[in-house]
């Protein structure tokens, strides 16, 4: 069974050159089949990287990577929606919808559903398929049982033989996206208004750490998004995921060596290294950041089982 790695969209606000160089290196070195790019968190960041899209897309495609254009996780106004229109017009690859408001622009065309649209059950998955979704990345909090049920639909068509069921993709590495808001907590933490934020989020390339009153790492803030402080990690669960029919695995970019992370997951999927060795290597790459896999096991998301 062929398995494929996807690099999720870079969710933080990096300087444009750093953003471009990151994708160049991914194109040149990372063993990933698909690469998502596009602004998911805040439309105010988009103008910085948009002029670089052409050369990045070219480089990725030349390296044989499929390009996926990700769109905003929360669409409240024309600026958010404009990013969806831009992605559709660019025509460089599949567009990934992350808010239902994007669906009317994509219905009838092959597209991808990102982890911010609530696909919790078979009926919703079937509806997405009917609209033209070819791939669905499931929400972070879904446990193994749900993933299994939905991945099963992949092969067993449910009353709609004419429509192929979307492939299920699961995030297996990177901070869990936990919440999205119309408010910018990054600006709030820097005591600025959302409109006068001066790109506070640019100060924290791996997110702004949020600790409990007892100084325990808990969350990170990334603009209007709130993520887990821990890096989600389903390295030890890859065999289980494969067994329940999942063939696509998503790595969400962090500031640590993502090329190495991608190689590690590729090697593990191909059985080139064993579980123990892979765990130790990832632990080293993650540095001081905790790992978590509780969602998959139906436990507190912050747990590492």
């Amino acid at each position: 069974m062929t398995t494929l790695l996807t690099l999720g969209p870079l969710l933080y606000h990096w300087p444009a050159e750093a953003w471009r160089d990151f994708y160049f290196r991914i194109a040149d070195e990372a063993p990933v089949a698909s690469v998502c790019m596009g602004e998911v968190v805040c439309p105010k960041r988009a103008p910085f990287t948009f002029p670089l899209y052409e050369e990045v897309i070219e480089r990725l495609q030349a390296a044989g990577k499929e390009v996926v254009l990700s769109t905003p996780a929360l669409i409240t106004d024309h600026r958010d929606l404009a990013l969806v229109k831009d992605a559709v017009e660019l025509g460089a690859g599949l567009v990934e919808a992350n808010d239902v408001a994007a669906l009317p622009l994509l219905t009838g065309k092959p597209h991808v559903i990102g982890p911010y649209i609530n696909v919790y059950n078979e009926s919703t998955l079937a509806r997405m398929a009917a609209d033209g979704a070819v791939r669905v990345t499931l929400p972070a909090e879904l446990p193994a049982a749900s993933i299994g049920k939905l991945a099963e639909q992949d092969s067993a068509a449910i009353g709609m033989p004419e429509i192929g069921m979307p492939m299920i993709e699961i995030q297996v590495f990177g901070r869990w996206p936990l919440a999205i808001s119309a408010r910018c907590y990054h600006a709030r933490a820097y005591e600025r208004s959302k409109d006068g934020c001066l790109y506070a989020c640019g100060e924290d390339p791996d997110g702004l750490p949020v600790e409990t009153l007892d100084d325990e790492p808990f969350l990170v803030v990334n603009g209007v998004q709130t993520q887990s402080a821990s890096y989600g990690c389903l390295l030890n669960e890859l065999d289980l995921l494969k067994a329940c029919g999942v063939r696509r695995f998503r790595l969400s970019p962090q500031t640590i060596g993502m090329i190495e992370v991608a190689r590690l997951f590729r090697d593990r999927l191909d059985g080139r290294i064993d579980r123990e060795e892979a765990s130790v290597a990832l632990r080293q790459l993650a540095g001081h950041t905790a790992l978590s896999n509780g969602f998959f096991h139906g436990r507190e998301g912050a747990q590492f089982v």
Binding site: L74, N118, L178, A179, I180, T226, G294, F295, G301, A302
Partner: peptide, 14 residues
């Protein structure tokens, strides 16, 4: 937060 799209509670409590 955008309601129905928030996993903060399940991150801490399951």
């Amino acid at each position: 937060m955008a309601e129905g799209r928030c996993a903060l509670s399940s991150y801490a409590t399951g």
